[in-house]
Amino acid sequence: MSETTGCTADWHLEHSTPEQLLHYLDPHYPFARQANVLARRFRDVQALCDGGEATPALTRLRNALAFHLIKLSRWWRFDFCPRGVTGVNNPLFLTYVKNHAERSVDDESLLDAFTAQRYMHAGDGGHIVILGYDPLTDPTISILYGVDGQRTFRFATGSHGAEPLWNGQGYPDFASAWLAARAVHALVCDNSTDLHEFETAQREHMWARAWHQQHFHRSRKLPLIQLYAQARAQLSNCQSAFGRAEMKTVTDRLAFTLAQTAFQRRMTVADLIEESDMLAINLRAANTIKQRARAYVATCIDPLVRPEMDILLDRVVSYVPRRCP
């Protein structure tokens, strides 16, 4: 993949603001797409700044993108090493983050809640920084989200105009709190169908959450094809729409990584499968991996580099039939 996309500073100032790229309060937007695009845009803007185009506006954009990479990592609970993901050493990256936070009271408060907690009652589950209201719920009931002194996500429900009642449980990531809040909302509305859907999604999100944590990992404890088989099995067991969507993205990402690996090693996808006994070696299995890889590129890769990734996949051969001797 190219080091940069070749876009100008003016283009990024118009098209790469965090507000355009991120959807914090709606977990339906794929986590992988937001993380991938945000990291790619930061690297592009950083390269422009390093290349002598560090205008005040572009510097502010770079700092904002850095802050939101940290925020997104806490929001979705994935492991994030600035140097590993962006190429910028950790102390310098954190300088960018702090410079951004100094310009925004809300962002400084959130950063403090997740780090030093100078303004929070450290460790106090009852001291909560407000994140915002759920924009998609029934107009008669409001759902409010926050982060508490234990650095867990919380939600509160209530009728409009009334004091919100905070749920006593904390959640490790925003999506978990969102799903729990939606389940409570369904219970209040006596909607058994939605209640079952969101309770099921909560369980299935726990599977996806483990994969999200490793999104930017480069080393793996298990062979890639084995991880793909595990994710595919979990996907087949998902019953909720939310769970299926999350696990489909995870499975597609692993398929994309498999296709990349096949390209780099100048192998067919089937040859890569043959290195493991996890899947049957046939045209259908190999083509499915390539199709999933294309789906991942179409939905979760920065549009700026999709043409390059499509060309890569065009060059990947799925399967070459074996001839009998």
Rank of each mutant, 00 (worst) to 15 (best):
F67G: 02
M1V: 07
A101K: 00
W75V: 07
E197R: 05
E308P: 00
T193F: 04
L136E: 15
T115D: 05
P30K: 00
T251D: 05
E19S: 15
P91V: 07
I289H: 03
G168A: 13
R232N: 11
M1L: 06
Q291I: 02
S73C: 09
P172F: 10
C81D: 15
E246P: 01
A280P: 02
Q34K: 05
W166F: 12
A201V: 07
T157C: 09
N282C: 12
R294D: 03
V85R: 07
A286P: 02
K221P: 00
P27D: 07
A245D: 15
L21N: 08
H23P: 03
G126N: 14
T95K: 14
T268S: 15
A47H: 15
A54V: 01
D190F: 06
I289D: 08
R77M: 13
L72F: 09
G84W: 08
F263N: 04
R62G: 06
C7Q: 12
A177P: 04
L61N: 06
L110T: 07
A245Q: 15
A32L: 05
W75A: 01
L283S: 14
R62Y: 07
C189G: 05
P307C: 02
R62E: 07
P164N: 06
T251L: 03
A285D: 07
V188M: 08
T59Q: 14
M120C: 12
T257V: 04
G170K: 07
Q264K: 13
T261F: 01
L313D: 00
G243E: 01
G149S: 05
P91E: 09
T4C: 13
T17Y: 01
P172H: 13
Y119L: 13
W211E: 06
A255D: 10
A186L: 03
K290M: 06
R60F: 13
D190M: 10
E274N: 09
A245Y: 02
H217G: 02
T249S: 12
R77S: 11
D134K: 05
